[in-house]
Amino acid sequence: MGKATKKSEPVTDTKDKTPSSRKKKYFDVSFYHDWCKSCGICMAFCPQKIIGTDSKGRPVIEDADRCVGCRFCEIHCPDFAITVSDRKPKRRINDV
């Protein structure tokens, strides 16, 4: 009593095992610059080396298509300033 008991095990294996799921997944990485302190952690440790800096030393994504969605940047940002999200499929122009 009084300590946590796990209420439900969330579904961790959300991967679709069908052949089409081997298609590359894309992610979007966004920075909340109002909270970022330009500490350099995300730029230094991104395994894909796709986080660069702007002229003020703030992080910018250089090539979002190469992001592997590992979330290393997100969980190591001491300032809660990074969001990594699954990229939503883009709507075609005449797809209203």
């Binding site: 302190k37 330009s38 969980i75 190591h76 001491p78 300032d79």
Partner: peptide, 20 residues
Amino acid sequence: FPHVWCPGCGNGIVMGALLR
């Protein structure tokens, strides 16, 4: 926010882990 800790301070990383 941003919180009071210095840029890059590990306290923020632990705070994130606790919340997750």
